[in-house]
Design a protein around this nucleic acid. Structure first.
Lengths: 239, 239
DNA sequence: AAGTGGTCTAGACCACCGC
DNA sequence: CGGTGGTCTAGACCACTTC
C-alpha cells in the first residue's frame, strides 16, 4: 500500500528512507549526483528531500565528504507541531481523553493578549485528562475564542482539531514554551502520581496559516512517562 | 560596521530583517519576485533567505497569498544548539560559572552507551554551577571521554567548547531530551531555590560533524528563571 | 484571470576533503 | 587533484488565493 505522494521530493525522501532502513548509523549514502540518476530528478529535488530528512536527523551531511545515515532512530523526532493523538501514536500508544469540564469564560488580560482578543471576550475552556493506552498521561486545558467555535457548537466526543478544520481553520504553527512545574494535589491524583510530583508544562498558542490565534493550551505531562526529544543543530561556529 | 557575509542569501536575509524591524507582525512583505529585483539575485537565493528567516519565525509564508512579518519577537528563537554562554547572551544576560568538582571517572553502562565507549572507559566529569548576571541559573554535569580531552589537559578557566575546537573538534549536532525533575536538597541550595523545587532537566549528547560523540551533559535549569521557547510548524494536515 | 508561493529543471562555480 | 556538498542562476509549470 504505497502512499501516493504528490511531490517528487517526497517520493525521493521515501526512497532514501528505505535505503536507510537496511543501514547502520554513520553509513555512507550515495552522492547527490548519484541519487539524481537513481531517481531521475534534478539535484535541487534531491536536496529538498535531503533537507526534509536531515531536519529529523535521519541523515546528515558532511561538506566535502558525503551524506550519512543518522545516529539512532530513537532520537529521530525533532519537535514538530502534533496533536496529542498523533504524538502518542508516534510513540506506539493509543490516545483517548476524559473531559473534566467544559465551560464559558471571559478572557482575562493574559488570555486576551495571547489570543489577540479584547478583555472579557467570550471564550470556552475545555479541561481534559489525556490518556495513553488508558493510562493518565497529561492534563490539558484549552481556551478557544467563541468567535471561532461556540461552546454550544462544541462536540465533546470529537477531535477539537477536526472541528476547527470543518470550519476551514487549520492549525499551521504554534509558539510554545516548555517549563517544569510541581503539580497540585488534585492534578497528582488525576495523573496517578505521588503527591508533589514534577511535570513538564507546555504553554502553546496555535495559529492558522494567516497568523490568526485559534487556541491557547496549557498541558502538563507526567515526567515519569513523557520527555521531549529533539535534535538540535548549529548554524555557525561555537561561541 | 556591516558584517561581511560570505553568502548572498545571508545578505538578503539581513536586508529582509531591516525591513522587518520597521514593521508590525502580520504586515505584508514584498513578493519573492519583487525581492529578486530589489536584491539582484535569483529566486532560489531569495527562498534560501526566507527559509532561514521562517525557521526562526521572523517571517511566514501563506501559499497563494504572500509573505508576512512574524508574530512576536519574544518567541522568535526556535531551539538551536547553543552553549550556555550564547544562550544567556541571547537573553541579554552575562554568563559565568563556578566549578563544583572535576574528577576522573569510569564510564558505566549508560554513559558508555551514550558516548559510544567501552564499559569502564576513562572519562572526566566536570560539575559546574552556571550563573547568569552572577545569579545561579543552572547546574551542569558534563562527561567527556579522556580519549578526546584528558583531565590533566583540562583548563578549568577556559570554555570547554574552545578546548574542543583547539583540538579540531567542533560540535555540530546534539540529541537532546527535556524533562522535569524535582531537585535534591543540595541542588536547591546551590540554585538558591526553595526546597523541593522543580527544574527543567536537559540531557544532551553532542557530536562532531562526523557523528563522533564528544560530550554527554546533564543540565538542570531553574524553572522560575528559565523556559524553552520555540516555534513549531506542521508538515501536513492535522490528524 | 492574475498573482502568489511551492516545486522543479539543467545547468554552473565554489570551498572543502581525501588521496 | 578529483569528488563532495553548498550556493547560485534563469528559466518553467503548478495549486492556490484573491479579485
Amino acid at each position: 500500500m504505497a502512499q501516493e505522494s504528490l511531490h517528487k521530493y517526497e517520493v525521493v525522501a521515501a526512497g532514501i528512507i528505505t535505503m536507510i532502513e537496511d543501514a547502520s548509523p554513520h553509513d555512507l549514502l550515495p552522492t547527490e549526483r548519484a541519487l539524481m540518476e537513481m531517481f531521475g530528478v534534478s539535484r535541487m529535488t534531491i536536496r529538498a528531500a535531503v533537507r526534509k530528512l536531515s531536519e529529523t536527523g535521519q541523515v546528515y551531511n558532511v561538506p566535502g565528504s558525503g551524506m550519512y545515515v543518522g545516529f539512532r532512530e530513537v532520537f529521530s523526532k525533532s519537535p514538530r507541531l502534533t496533536s496529542f493523538t498523533e504524538d502518542m501514536r508516534s510513540r506506539g500508544l493509543e490516545a483517548s481523553s476524559r473531559v473534566l469540564s467544559a465551560q464559558s469564560v471571559r478572557a482575562d488580560s493574559g488570555l486576551a493578549a495571547r489570543l489577540g482578543l479584547e478583555l472579557d471576550a467570550p471564550c470556552f475552556r475545555l479541561h481534559r485528562l489525556r490518556l495513553a493506552n488508558s493510562e493518565p498521561m497529561a492534563i490539558e486545558e484549552v481556551f478557544v475564542p467563541e468567535s471561532i467555535l461556540r461552546l454550544d457548537d462544541l462536540d465533546l466526543g470529537q477531535s477539537l482539531y477536526e472541528q476547527f478544520a470543518s470550519r476551514g481553520l487549520q492549525i499551521y504553527r504554534a509558539e510554545q514554551e516548555v517549563l517544569a512545574v510541581i503539580l497540585s494535589a488534585s492534578d497528582c491524583q488525576l495523573l496517578q502520581v505521588p503527591d508533589g510530583s514534577a511535570a513538564i508544562g507546555v504553554h502553546r498558542v496555535s495559529s492558522s496559516n494567516r497568523g490568526r490565534p485559534i487556541e491557547f493550551a496549557r498541558t502538563f505531562y507526567r515526567s515519569d512517562r513523557y520527555t521531549f526529544r529533539m535534535i538540535v543543530n548549529r548554524d555557525e561556529a561555537v561561541q
